[in-house]
Each structure stands twice: as structure tokens, then as C-alpha cells.
Amino acid sequence: MTVADKPVPVPTPVTRPFWEGTKEGELRVQKCDACGKHIFYPRPGCPFCGAADPSWVVATGRARLESYVINHLPGPGFKDDVPYVIAIVTLEEGPRMMTNLVGVDPDPAKLTLDMPLEVVFEERGDQVLPKFRPVEVKA
């Protein structure tokens, strides 16, 4: 299996700013101009207050580990990757997203809930995916 076999996201008009952002090394999320809340996944209106046309902002890329599994049942194209960590992370701005953790062993002893993470970007076909790695603890 090669990377080419792995699923590649196809942007839509509403999500395109997100995927243009990852190519620029930016994690972009929407922010509602009316209620001020950050929004993910991208939508044409704010799911919290109903206001139309939320703005796009660049997130810090800092997050914490919300929940995870160590996956042994590979998805399409992931046969050589097992076991790998599928995680839900919570961005500093509030929204949650699914991702993979990289730069850490797939070992429960190394995966502490709420551990600090930072975004990294990895090419996938003609797109770039946001993934997360543990933040180096400075001595």
C-alpha cells in the first residue's frame, strides 16, 4: 500500500479556505462575527447563533488530547501503518477535530489525556492534512 491509496479529501466551496490554509501551513477555522465562537467543521452559517457567513481566522495550532483509540484495524491504504493513533483533539480556540497523532509511540503509557499537542502538516495526494504531535517539554 502506498500513500496514494489513502483517502484524499475533496474540498467543497464552503470548506475550500480550510484546505487552502493547510497548503500554506495554516490551520484555519471559522469564527462567527456575531457571537464570537469558533466553528469547526466549516459551514455556511454559525451553528451556535444562526448568523450567516462566518469569517475565517488562523488558529494557533495548539491543542490538547481529548480522546483516542490505538487502531489495529487498518483503513484503506493504512495496512502498513498499524497500530496507529486516531484521536480527537480540542483546539485552543475551542473546536474539536479528528486527527492522527504523530511523533509518539502508539502506547497507552505515552498517551495521557489532556497532554499538549501542536499541529503539523502532511501531504496527502493533492491536499495537505493537519495532524498533531506532542509538544516538546522544555527542561
Binding site: 489513502k6 483517502p7 484524499v8 479529501p9 475533496v10 474540498p11 467543497t12 470548506t15 484546505w19 467543521y41 487502531n71 487498518p74 483503513g75 491504504g77 493504512f78 501503518d81 496507529y84 486516531i86 477535530m97 479528528m98 486527527t99 492522527n100 496527502r124 492534512l129
Partner: peptide
């Protein structure tokens, strides 16, 4: 691949 799951879940090997 252009659904929300196709963009924000399936690429992570679920």
C-alpha cells in the same frame, strides 16, 4: 471524499 466525513474523518484511517 467531499462529504464532511470524507474530508475530516476518513483521511485519518478510520
Amino acid at each position: 471524499a467531499d462529504s464532511m466525513a470524507g474530508q475530516f474523518e476518513l483521511p485519518y484511517g478510520v
